[in-house]
Amino acid sequence: MDALIASLSILTVVVADYTRRVVRCSSKKVIASIFVVAICLSGVCSQEGNSRHVMGERVTHAALRAENEALRIENEALRRENQMLRRELVARKGGKAAASDGVPVKGNAVEVPVPQDPDTGYWISSKSHIRHNPKCRSYRKVRGRACGPNDGKPCKNCGG
């Protein structure tokens, strides 16, 4: 905006000089009147630069920024409220299945031995609880563990 005012001032002096020479009237009068126009123009421009129309209403940038900040704060408050409601909802309605939570942090996980399953000749799927025998293509292929001959449900393909 400062640059605009500076250019307008230079323009004013140039135009004033030209007008004085052509019209041969007092240079002071011309400069004064052009300055008034320039200042009015710069005022209008600066007003335009810092404002915009929202739904037909002229709103300044400062007002928009304040509104934006208020919305941001409101948003954060709503998010916190949501979080609290979720926690309450889950605690009331959700119930907690017996799980492996509460296990302390274990060090050097790379060294934790993976349990080796004994070869019992039966394999039970962890998800479906279906039992397979070594003739089945699911034997030791599905995630599960070695089991006894009567654990879970027998597989329809291999008989379990």
Binding site: D101, V105, A109
Partner: peptide, 21 residues
């Protein structure tokens, strides 16, 4: 310097898995 893993620990609900660090 140190490494390991932990399961998610929550009083209200069981959360699958956890984190490695």
């Amino acid at each position: 310097l140190r490494s390991g893993y932990a399961v998610w620990s929550n009083a209200e609900v069981s959360i699958p898995r956890g984190f490695a660090y």
